[in-house]
Amino acid sequence: HTHLDDEAQKELRDFHEALDLWTTFQTRTHSLALSLASQLRLILTPSQATKLSGAYKTGKRLRIRSIISYIASDFKRDKIWMRRAIPTKRTYQIMVCVDDSMSMLNNGAGALALESLVMMTRSLTMLEAGQIGVLGFGEKTFVAHSLGDPGFSSHDAGARVLQQFTFKQEQTNMCELLRTTISHFSEARLRNSASSGSEDLWQLALILSDGMVGKSERETLRPLLREALEQRIMCVFIMMDNAKGSGSSVLDLKEVEFVKGRDGESTVKLVKYLDSFPFPYFLVVHDLEDLPGALAGLLRSWFSEVTR
């Protein structure tokens, strides 16, 4: 009966409650959403081509290699300048993945994640950055808003997404999330290339979670993260942690290992949790106010690395 269980109506938050929540969050985070949008605009829109190239009579920078022939030709071969080529138009598909597991109820991580979700989707909608999807994950990954759906300009669309997050899933299956994200993105890439051809498509997964991933899963995640990278999917892990200074922050969290010594005796070893965290790009957010700047900073450095 498992498939029946799966289809059994997922418990939803009341629509009016979700609508209130969306409206409250949207109002409260409006200025943050604007700030994120203006920072992302600079990063996501290539204002210039990445490289100077060509040989022109006028241009931006001298092409040193041409100088000798310029002089040798009695200043006749004067195409000694390089210009920036016209920037390629980039399009984006952005998947916001929200942790729907029970652990999100600790330290108010769930509330912070939903508020961040509203802020980010509003910001990306304002930017018209491209398609936005929302996935929920826990024991099972589900589509809360598919990439093809219209954006988040109406409160109703937002409320229907919020309705689906109740933080009742009893496991956090991050590997399944990664697999689902990769397969959604590869389908979306096909659909995109069929419709718009040669545009430069970038796919971004933004994961909002408390960061609690099982030990064995952290290992299984590594090959999946490599696969995502090979598929040119960028995964940013945004850790919701508003427990800074209370002792239960993920920054302080340690895990216990019993290490067997050569004499067969085991000793207690404490290891920093974040040291074995498998996502190479992650942020720890204590306060929603930090998010726009931190996210923009991370994306900026990532883009400058990949487009160099």
């Binding site: 002792g247 302080d252 969290l253 207690v268 404490l270």
Partner: peptide
């Protein structure tokens, strides 16, 4: 101290293992 109060422990642990953790040099 507050920064040592929260830990991830193996879930098959019992009273004895927990005692060892608390007694350890790191705690």
């Amino acid at each position: 101290p507050e920064s040592k109060r929260t830990l991830l422990v193996p879930s098959d642990i019992r009273r004895y293992g927990l005692s060892r953790i608390l007694n350890s040099e790191s705690m």
